Each structure stands twice: as structure tokens, then as C-alpha cells.
Computed example of a mutant assay.
Amino acid sequence: MPIDVRHAVAPDQLPQFTTADLRDRFVVGDLFAEGECRFCYSMADRLVIGGVVPGGASVPLTTPDEVRSEYFCERRELGVVNVGAADGIVTTDGVEHVLAPADVLYVGRGTRQVVFAGDARFYLVSAPAHAEHPTVKVTRDEAMPVALGSIKTSNERVIHKYIHAEGAASCQLVLGVTFLAEGSMWNTMPAHVHERRSEIYLYFNLPDDQRVVHLMGEPHETRHVVLANEQAVISPPWSIHAGMGTASYAFVWAMAGENLDYGDVEQQPIVGLL
């Protein structure tokens, strides 16, 4: 199917958008279809996200015309997250990597062939790469945990960092998964912006009859979009990104941009949000 291309949006455009406009520009759904590779190309730092559901078959990573390359990772690096409930296999240039739920595979630039198999649900995030780094698997137990928040403020959570400056090496891709404690519904609050990186969230493990209300926009001019399970939302460098769920959930966060410094953010006081 044709790749979904999302163009960059300036902050002064946001107040003019209707709910439909916001969803058309920032919300990405329908990434996961059995037997297919589906993609969305965001012009914000040229991030590409995708979904693959092998369904028991073998599904090769396709190369959309929009990336203008012989093979997908010719000039790109790739992060693969198993967001499903079963194990899956990712084969890179003949080498098999078994990914359990919440495991991540970093695929380096120059990898010519990537094939997905098993009953997993694979979420893909890719960024342009200027150098080659080794392909490496990082399990959930091997990821760097960071405990944040409190049950008293409904945002107790553990951030697991997989692809980052102190973990799996990359050119500009930074990726992790956040799991909320039982009874906590807020993520990334207090909110922040990071003007040197764009970010994309994928919400998963959310019951089909529940939703996440995701806040975005400049801190003084916020908007919201309502997201279902396995929907993603694009966050430009000028936008906050925080959400409140109606039930338990997890999310994959992924960034690309000028640096790999996870702490390079501008915190926004809660009382200053409008």
C-alpha cells in the first residue's frame, strides 16, 4: 500500500486546526495488518514508523519509493519493538534474532535484508543514519530502567531505555518503552519540550474499549487528540507530549534529531499549561 506521508507543521498553525485536522496531521492509525509492512513517513526529522504482523508467515521489510534507496537500511537505521504478546523472529542478513514481548532490536545502516516471522506484532521506527552501528538485541531486562513519578500523582512509571547513548549505539535514534504502575494513568507529567528532537509515541497494551487523551501543542496553546490501542502520535520539537489513559497501558517513545542526550529537554511547569 502507499506510504502515509505527513508534512511538517508550524506552531502558529495549530490554533486553526479542527479535531479532524489534528488527526490528519499527527495521529497515525492502521499500522498493523497481517502479512503487510505499513509505514508512515514524518517530515519531522524524517522519522519513518511502521508496523508488521507476520501472522505465522515470513514478511520481508519492503522499501517504500519515498525513501529513494535500493534497500530500506541503505541510508537508515531501524528500531524494532515487539509490542505483541508472543515471541517473534527478526532475521537480518541471515542472522536470526528472537524477540520476546517488549524486546527491541537495533538494526544498523547497511543491513540489506530484514525478514519478520512468528506471532509477534512488530513496531518499527527508523531515522536517517550517517554511520554504521552493529545490529544488537536488547531485552526488557537488559534495558536501562528509570523509575519516575508517584502513585500519589497518578504517574508512577518505569522508563526502559533501549537505544540511547549508554545502551545500543545509534546515529540519532533514541528509543524506549514506558510501563505505568497499576493505578497510574498519566505519562510524562510534568510535560516538557525538546526543540532539538522530534518524538513519536505509540500507545499499546490498551484495552480496545479504552482510550488515551494525549496532550500536544505549545505549553501556552495546548490541544488534545484521543487515541486507541496501537495508534501513534507525532510530536514536533515545539510540542509537549503527555497523556492520560482511562485504563492501564504502555507506550513506545522514539526520538531523532540533533543529539542523543536524553536529558536535553525544557521542563514545563504544570501551572503554566494552558
Rank of each mutant, 00 (worst) to 15 (best):
I3K: 01
V9T: 14
P11V: 03
P11L: 04
D12M: 10
D12R: 08
Q16D: 13
F17C: 10
T19Q: 15
T19R: 15
A20C: 06
D24A: 14
R25H: 13
A33T: 03
C37R: 00
Y41V: 07
A44V: 02
D45W: 06
L47D: 00
I49K: 02
V53S: 04
P54D: 01
A57S: 13
S58H: 12
P60E: 09
L61F: 02
D65A: 14
D65G: 07
S69V: 10
E70H: 09
F72N: 09
C73Q: 04
E74C: 04
R75M: 08
E77A: 06
L78E: 01
L78K: 05
G84I: 02
G84M: 04
A85C: 08
A85V: 03
V95H: 12
V95T: 14
A102W: 13
V107L: 07
T111M: 01
Q113A: 12
F116M: 11
V125D: 00
A127C: 12
A131L: 02
H133D: 09
T135K: 01
V136D: 14
K137E: 02
T139Y: 15
R140P: 07
E142K: 10
E142L: 05
A143F: 14
V146S: 13
A147Q: 12
V158E: 10
V158G: 07
I163V: 15
A168S: 06
S170L: 09
G176I: 08
L180I: 12
G183Q: 14
S184H: 00
N187E: 01
T188C: 15
T188K: 05
M189C: 13
P190A: 01
A191Q: 09
H192F: 12
H192D: 02
H192Q: 12
V193S: 05
R196D: 12
E199R: 02
N205D: 15
N205V: 06
L206A: 01
P207L: 08
V212W: 03
V212A: 07
H224A: 03
V225F: 01
N229I: 04
E230L: 13
P237N: 03
G245Y: 02
T246H: 03
T246Q: 08
A250F: 06
F251H: 15
W253G: 01
W253C: 01
A254E: 02
A254Q: 03
M255T: 09
A256D: 02
A256V: 01
N259Q: 05
G263C: 03
Q267S: 07
V271I: 11
